[in-house]
Amino acid sequence: QTVQFNGLEYHFPNPEEAEKFAKKVAKELGGEVRVKDGRWQID
């Protein structure tokens, strides 16, 4: 599972970890999490 933001990609072994990370980062950055092409993106 991949999380993308600021032009970087973070890879996680399972979707739960990816989701948790994506939501944490979005909260800290005040961004929005969305899934695109099977990847988590933070904008």
Rank of each mutant, 00 (worst) to 15 (best):
Q1N: 14
Q1F: 15
Q1W: 15
Q1D: 10
Q1R: 13
Q1S: 14
Q1T: 14
Q1A: 14
Q1H: 14
T2P: 01
T2K: 07
T2H: 05
T2N: 04
T2V: 14
T2R: 07
T2M: 08
T2S: 08
V3W: 00
V3T: 01
V3D: 00
V3E: 00
V3H: 01
V3Q: 00
V3S: 00
V3R: 00
V3I: 05
V3C: 02
Q4T: 13
Q4F: 14
Q4V: 15
Q4D: 09
Q4S: 13
Q4R: 12
Q4I: 15
Q4G: 07
F5R: 02
F5I: 13
F5M: 06
F5K: 01
F5V: 14
F5C: 13
F5D: 00
F5T: 02
F5S: 02
F5G: 01
F5L: 10
F5N: 01
F5P: 00
F5W: 12
N6V: 03
N6H: 12
N6K: 07
N6E: 08
N6A: 10
N6I: 04
N6P: 00
N6Y: 06
N6F: 08
N6M: 12
N6T: 01
G7C: 15
G7K: 04
G7Y: 03
G7E: 05
G7I: 01
G7H: 05
G7V: 00
G7Q: 04
G7T: 02
G7N: 07
L8G: 07
L8K: 13
L8R: 13
L8Q: 12
L8W: 12
L8V: 13
L8A: 09
L8S: 08
L8E: 11
L8M: 12
L8H: 13
E9A: 06
E9Y: 09
E9M: 09
E9C: 15
E9T: 12
E9D: 10
E9L: 13
E9G: 01
E9H: 07
E9P: 00
E9F: 09
E9I: 14
E9R: 05
Y10D: 02
Y10K: 05
Y10L: 09
Y10G: 02
Y10C: 15
Y10Q: 04
Y10V: 07
Y10E: 01
Y10W: 11
Y10H: 05
Y10R: 05
Y10N: 01
Y10M: 07
Y10A: 04
H11C: 15
H11K: 07
H11N: 08
H11R: 06
H11G: 04
H11T: 09
H11E: 07
H11Q: 09
H11P: 04
H11D: 06
H11F: 13
F12N: 00
F12I: 01
F12G: 00
F12P: 02
F12R: 00
F12D: 01
F12Q: 00
F12Y: 01
F12A: 00
F12K: 00
F12S: 00
F12E: 01
P13T: 12
P13W: 08
P13H: 09
P13V: 10
N14C: 14
N14R: 02
N14S: 13
N14K: 03
N14P: 00
N14Q: 04
P15W: 12
P15T: 09
P15I: 10
P15V: 12
P15Y: 13
P15N: 09
P15M: 10
P15K: 12
P15G: 09
P15E: 11
E16M: 09
E16C: 14
E16Y: 10
E16T: 10
E16F: 08
E16Q: 11
E16K: 08
E16D: 10
E17S: 08
E17M: 10
E17I: 05
E17N: 03
E17L: 09
E17H: 03
E17G: 03
E17K: 04
A18M: 01
A18D: 02
A18L: 03
A18G: 01
A18E: 02
A18I: 00
A18N: 01
A18S: 01
A18R: 00
A18F: 02
A18T: 01
A18K: 02
E19F: 07
E19S: 04
E19M: 07
E19C: 14
E19N: 03
E19V: 03
E19K: 06
E19P: 02
K20L: 10
K20Y: 08
K20S: 10
K20W: 09
K20F: 08
K20D: 12
K20P: 00
K20A: 13
F21C: 15
F21W: 11
F21E: 03
F21G: 03
F21R: 01
A22T: 01
A22F: 05
A22Y: 04
A22G: 01
A22R: 04
A22N: 00
A22C: 12
A22E: 02
K23N: 11
K23M: 09
K23V: 09
K23G: 05
K23T: 10
K23Y: 09
K23W: 06
K23E: 10
K23L: 08
K23F: 07
K24F: 07
K24T: 10
K24Q: 13
K24E: 12
K24L: 11
K24C: 15
K24A: 14
K24N: 10
V25Y: 05
V25E: 01
V25I: 14
V25H: 03
V25F: 05
V25C: 15
V25D: 00
V25T: 06
A26R: 02
A26S: 06
A26T: 04
A26M: 06
A26P: 00
A26E: 02
A26Y: 02
K27W: 08
K27L: 12
K27M: 12
K27E: 12
K27R: 11
K27I: 10
K27P: 01
K27C: 15
K27V: 08
K27G: 09
K27A: 13
K27F: 10
K27Q: 12
E28M: 14
E28F: 11
E28N: 08
E28K: 11
E28S: 10
E28R: 13
E28Q: 12
E28L: 14
L29K: 05
L29A: 07
L29C: 15
L29W: 11
L29Q: 08
L29E: 06
L29N: 08
L29Y: 12
L29S: 11
G30N: 09
G30K: 07
G30E: 06
G30Y: 06
G30M: 06
G30L: 05
G31C: 15
G31Q: 08
G31I: 13
G31D: 04
G31P: 01
G31A: 13
G31Y: 13
G31T: 10
G31E: 06
E32N: 11
E32L: 12
E32F: 12
E32V: 14
E32I: 15
E32K: 12
E32S: 14
V33C: 15
V33D: 02
V33H: 03
V33W: 05
V33N: 02
V33T: 07
V33L: 11
V33M: 07
V33R: 02
V33K: 02
V33Q: 02
V33A: 15
R34M: 10
R34F: 12
R34N: 09
R34E: 06
R34H: 11
R34A: 08
R34Q: 10
R34P: 02
R34C: 15
R34T: 13
R34K: 12
V35S: 07
V35M: 14
V35K: 08
V35P: 03
V35R: 08
V35N: 09
V35I: 12
V35G: 05
V35L: 14
V35E: 08
V35W: 15
V35Y: 15
K36L: 06
K36I: 14
K36A: 10
K36T: 11
K36H: 11
K36N: 09
K36Y: 01
K36Q: 11
K36F: 01
K36W: 00
K36V: 15
D37I: 00
D37M: 01
D37G: 07
D37P: 00
D37F: 00
D37W: 00
D37L: 02
G38N: 09
G38R: 02
G38D: 06
G38E: 05
G38V: 01
G38K: 03
G38F: 00
G38Q: 03
G38T: 02
G38I: 01
G38L: 03
G38Y: 00
G38A: 03
G38C: 14
G38P: 03
R39F: 13
R39N: 11
R39C: 14
R39T: 09
R39P: 02
R39E: 07
R39Y: 14
W40D: 04
W40C: 07
W40S: 04
W40A: 04
W40F: 08
W40I: 09
W40M: 06
W40N: 05
W40T: 05
W40L: 10
W40Q: 04
Q41T: 14
Q41H: 12
Q41S: 07
Q41A: 06
Q41K: 04
Q41D: 09
Q41W: 15
I42K: 03
I42F: 05
I42H: 04
I42E: 04
I42S: 04
I42P: 04
I42C: 11
I42Q: 03
I42R: 02
D43K: 08
D43H: 12
D43Y: 14
D43Q: 11
D43V: 15
D43T: 14
D43L: 15
D43E: 12
D43M: 14
D43W: 15
D43R: 07
D43I: 15
